[in-house]
Structure formats: C-alpha cells, structure tokens
C-alpha cells in the first residue's frame, strides 16, 4: 500500500514538473532551430538566431535599458524597503498593523489597474518613457516583496542580540550598522535578487509607460511577437531565463535560498 502510494506521489510530482518545465524545454530546443519560423521539432539545427538576436539593435537597446532599470530598482527597493521593514517590525506606532497590510496592496490589485493609474499620474508629470518613470513604476511592484522579505528576516533575528549589544554600550545606529545589518545579509541579498528579477521581467506596467524613446526588453519582445514569429523569440526567452537562473544561483551559492527567505 505504501509502495503504491509512493508510486502515485512520484508520478504526480513528475507530472507537475513536466507541465511546468515542458514549455521551457520546447523553447530551449526551438532556440537552436535553423528554420525561419517557430516549429517543433525543428527541421534543422543552428546557432544563427543567437547571432541575430545579439545583432538586433532594438533588443540590445531594450536589454541595456532593462538592465539599468533593474539595477537601480533593486538598489532603491533595498534603500527604501529596509527602513520600512525595520519600522514595521521593531518600532511601535499607531497604525502599524494597518500599514503592514497595506504594504502588500499592490500585489493584490490587478496590474492593469495599477498601470492605468500610473499612466494618468505620470503623463502630466512628464515621467512617461523616462528612466525615473519606469524605475518608479517598477518600485510599486518590487517594494512590497522587498519589504515582506526583509520583514520576515528581521523578525526571525529576534531582539536579544541587538539588546545585548545595546547594554554593552552600542547606540542604536551602531547596533544597526554593526550587528543588525551584518546578520541581515541573507535577507538583503534575497530581496535585492527578487527585485532585480521582478523588474527585469516586468511587462504589464512597462507597457503603459514605455515609448519609442525608451523601451524595455520584455516590451520589445512582446511587440516583436505581435508581428513576427521566428526562433529569435525563443532565443530571447532562453536568454532571459538564463539570466534569472543565474541570479537565483548566485543567491543560492552565497547564502542559500531557504536561509535567505528566513526559514
């Protein structure tokens, strides 16, 4: 009976993994296609589409923009998220519970609505199709994640160690810089990585506020797919997956993902 159950559960897990990873596997295969349209399985193999992608100015420009925005968003997410998380965990002030719940509101609201709202505010402010505009819009998406992750890490640290430092003569800022922050490193790395990936892959909000002057990679890809379907799309998808995977691996290697999320 247990043997049968274990067979069932193994089959089930395999099935779920197939559903999740099959599309990615197909895309990976197609990216090495020699055909000039999307077909599976490809009739021939080549690396030519990788070359085409790397020579495509629209994509390369988009990649550059997305990378710059993602790095700035990740840095700002941390700079803004850490004090917020600290206040929400360590300080006691009226309305703390309310703010705690409101922080995750952007995750619950439909992205379309957010995008529309952002567009209506950004247009008169002249922020559409600018770096600051895109960074601000992405922050709306990434900050809730950063704050949540840092909040969890901070509450897992407890207060004993900080209090011990305080009684030994450390002032609050010294405690934070010399004791709290070093112990928070895994959370800092994890939240930054998440913000980086989220911003780099963000499309819904970006669609509202990009323009011909400034386009992100996901938007460029989306627009391209609208008109044409050739293996270049698959190549781009593979490259984006690879980048996200690389970031995840760096986190895993440096602090361990489970630890980074405070388990």
């Amino acid at each position: 009976m247990t043997k049968f159950l274990s067979f069932i559960s193994r089959t089930y897990v395999t099935l779920v993994f197939c559903i999740v990873f099959m599309p990615m596997a197909i895309i990976l295969v197609i990216s090495f296609s020699a055909d000039s349209y999307l077909s599976f399985p490809p009739s021939g193999w080549s690396l030519k589409w990788y070359g085409t992608v790397l020579g495509n100015t629209s994509f390369m420009q988009g990649f550059r923009n997305s990378a710059i925005i993602a790095v700035i968003v990740a840095a700002l997410s941390l700079a803004l998220g850490l004090p917020a998380a600290y206040a929400l965990v360590r300080l006691d002030f009226p309305g703390r519970a309310l703010i705690r719940s409101l922080v995750i509101a952007p995750l619950v609201l439909p992205a379309m609505m957010l995008g529309l709202g952002i567009l209506m505010v950004f247009t008169p402010a002249g922020l559409v199709a600018t770096y600051p505009g895109l960074v601000l819009a992405h922050l709306v998406m990434t900050l809730p994640f950063s704050i949540r992750i840092l909040q969890t890490s901070l509450s897992n640290l407890g207060t004993d160690v900080d209090e011990a430092a305080m009684t030994l003569g450390a002032r609050p800022l010294q405690v934070f810089m010399q004791i709290t922050l070093p112990r928070l490193t895994p959370g800092v790395i994890a939240s930054s990585a998440i913000a980086l990936i989220l911003s780099f892959d963000e499309i819904v909000l970006s669609l509202f506020i990009v323009g011909p002057r400034l386009q992100t990679l996901p938007v460029a890809l989306y627009r391209y797919v609208d008109e044409r379907t050739d293996p270049m799309v698959a190549v781009l998808a593979v490259l984006m997956i690879a980048l996200s995977l690389a970031i995840v691996l760096v986190v895993e290697r440096s602090v361990g993902f489970a630890k980074a999320f405070g388990r």
């Binding site: 160690v161 011990a164 030994l168 112990r183």
Partner: peptide
C-alpha cells in the same frame, strides 16, 4: 538613562552572541 549609558552586562538565555 538609555541602556548604552548604564554600563551593565546582560547575559541572555539565548546567549545572544554576535554570530558574524
């Protein structure tokens, strides 16, 4: 007086050492 100006030593049940 704040704790950092009291000159005292505190030992917790959890030891509360600085792990780094």
């Amino acid at each position: 007086r704040p704790p950092w100006e009291r000159n005292l030593g505190l030992v917790f049940q959890s030891y509360a050492l600085f792990p780094h």
